[in-house]
Design a protein around this nucleic acid. Sequence first.
RNA 1: GCCCGGGUGGUGAAACCGGUAGACACAUCGGACUUAAAAUCCGAAGGCGCGAGCCGUGCGGGUUCGAAUCCCGCCCCGGGCACCA
Length: 815
Amino acid sequence: MNHRTDSYFPAEVERKWQARWDEEGTNTYTDAELRSTGGNGEPFFNLMMFPYPSAEGLHVGNIYAFTGADIYGRYQRLRGRDVFEPIGFDAFGIHSENFALKVGTHPMELIPRNVERFTRQLRRVGFMYDWNHQVDTTTPDYYRWTQWLFLQLYKAGIAVKKEAPVNWCPGCNTVLANEQVIAGECERCGSAVELRNLSQWFFRITDYAERLLANLDWLDWSDTTKRMQANWIGRSDGAEVSFPVVGHGESSVRVFTTRPDTLFGATYMVLAPEHPLVETIAAPAHADAVERYRAAVAATDLVNRKKTDKEKTGVDTGARALNPATGEEIPIWIADYVLMEYGTGAIMAVPAHDQRDFEFARKFELPIRRVIAGADDAPDTPLDEAYSGEGTLVNSGRFDGMDSEEAKREVTATLEERGLASVKVNYRLHDWCISRQRYWGPPIPILYCDSCGALPVPEEQLPVILPRIADYKPDASGVSPLARHSEWYLTECPGCGEEARRETDVSDTFLDSSWYFLRYPSAGNEELPFDPQLTRQWLPVDMYIGGNEHAVLHLLYSRFITMVLKDLGHIDFEEPFARFRAHGLIVKDGTKMSKSRGNVVVPDEYIEEYGADTFRTYLMFIGPYQEGGDFREAGITGPYNFLNRLWDAVLSAEERPLDAEVEQKLHATIKKCTEDLEALSYNTAIAAMMEYLNVVRAGGRVPELAAVEPFVVMVAPFAPHLAEELWERLGRSGSIFDAAEWPSFDPAKAIADEVEFVVQVNGKLRARMPMARGITEQDARTAALDDPNVQRFIEGKPVRKTIFVPDRLVNLVVG
RNA sequence: GCCCGGGUGGUGAAACCGGUAGACACAUCGGACUUAAAAUCCGAAGGCGCGAGCCGUGCGGGUUCGAAUCCCGCCCCGGGCACCA
């Protein structure tokens, strides 16, 4: 690799400043300072998603995410804010545990080692972290409060244990939250997830669905992230309708539909095979077939159950229901395309207007009746596929001729009067299953006593310490490895003093990360999870930057937990992150970096070779931060040369009045950089600085001191070490981040006096000419008509029309 | 299937609100310096054409004096959701 060796030695400069930051506490607050918010400005909580400390060490994706966030934090600090920028480690969970099992090292040894290595790497990149306030979710000092949090939810009735169909991963031997199942597969190991009826701990996040959705309207978050959350919550507006079961007295099948306007077209019904009503209503002659089908469905995993391209299956129960609109008797079937988890677990089938029902009806020769006519089709033509759009009602009695939208309301209202329907909203969101039959997590702080039942562990007994056990490998038994250790789980009942058993499940990792931002300012506090005064001062988080892979998981759970804590009176805000920006993904050769593809970039070598400042600047220069980019080895020399040239320019600068052209460019660059940093548009900010440097050094000229001094401040968020060193060599004292102010610009000076004017004839470029800024249309037109090339294209024809864009162009329309 | 984001030179990319397409870089080529190389500095460069010029932002239409940008219809890539009733 080729090197400059003359003057700038990044590794040396960077080590010097990293050591000095530590010695002088440049980036850290003492607890007292944090409490007084520094005193020279407003607090700014700059948060980034804390990493999972993998054994492979910090990867480029981490550095990319953190650099973009760190630049924003350093920029805010230069603008005078008191910036709190903490970091921590999200080290519990299946990921760590699986790796520990694979290498045969106990997680209690593995994790501290990984954390140590991550810490070393993070320091080397020069992030502005407050190392006095870090958190590690696996320390008893932290998970004590995670358990406390569980108890608050338990006491409020939000954490409940219930039997329900849950996602069981046969690879990881544990249940999973819905959010952790991707297309029927475990997000960790890719195994096909099975549905099992198990008693598990749930958080009732569905009670918060509407608030979680509604607040998205005003949150200042990336649109992509908000959209993903909204889709995940998945609100559907419709009606719940009762279909009386023929010959079963009062019993009826309740269905949820978003299309009550199609009710007249409901020619049969389908229950989920698991539906409890099946047993009571199935006709004796059909009972055997029904039982066989139910057993077959119970044996299928989620991947196969939820495949949309397979042929529909189902059986007739022999029971019949009354369509409340037509009064007709319609058959009740069971089929696995109807899911027990959504709505009521039963549907009214309208084959003419729902593709799934259409396919089912075709296969089993059930009647298809059109009740909606589209804008321009004849309602009598037979259908090749369901018409699922809206339209005008037909074959619908007194509703004929009404349009869908009105009919939805009218049909529902009519049935409502008869007590057969009600307006209903459904959400795709499920309750959050938080128990895991694994080892590496905080034990759920619940006790079971034969006489007193389930009891919370008294708060003063927290933390319930996770014991060190050797046989922490999970099995298919459905219970945690902790259940093999009676010496741990047998304890005294706080109610009656008799023997009680501890809950042996641990909680989901996402519970650890759902509140870590609240802990940061209070890290180390042994009395409280989060100090009320510090929380008021520093929260909610001012800026949160992270990846969209957590749009539904961490970000949703954090919002939920924050709402709960507000409702329980622990905090006074309900949204944890005032601003959130999602960064893009850094890829290599157009594909995601992964070990299996063999295209993982190891950052350490680049940092040693070129320095952290270069690496940071390079990553930000690759492409738009919020879109990501393609890592190319060769590209790093651009930013490397830039920083070297900047170094030379600053150190060779002399005291002398600013050249007018340089001054204009300086103001324009400050303006551009300021706007771009606000918008996280780092790649264009760097390009603007490069352009400015090209002007400052044009033709090998000696730069003016006044041209380079503000430059050092502008580059500081990107290349903090270099900036500190240059600041010192310019004879300034103190850290640039404390002593310097972000440069300001004069809008009048940011624009040039002379502009290059474009002359078009019939919209085609025919001439360019320098003109004074602010030139009038008349003068511009006269100058344009004077140009020989313009005349040539006008060919003596009359100018029919002139388009004038001030300071930009004249377009002469002829012919 | 539905909902997003994207498609611009050899490459990464830029382009405010519809107004010079390709800024800034990488790689390339040429030059200076050097015994030589590296480093550094200066310069060239979308394609076609000797040239005036013509063509050019995934494809096909449209609106407009003027379209990478707006509208309609497609294709491809990436992401999210998905028998969600």
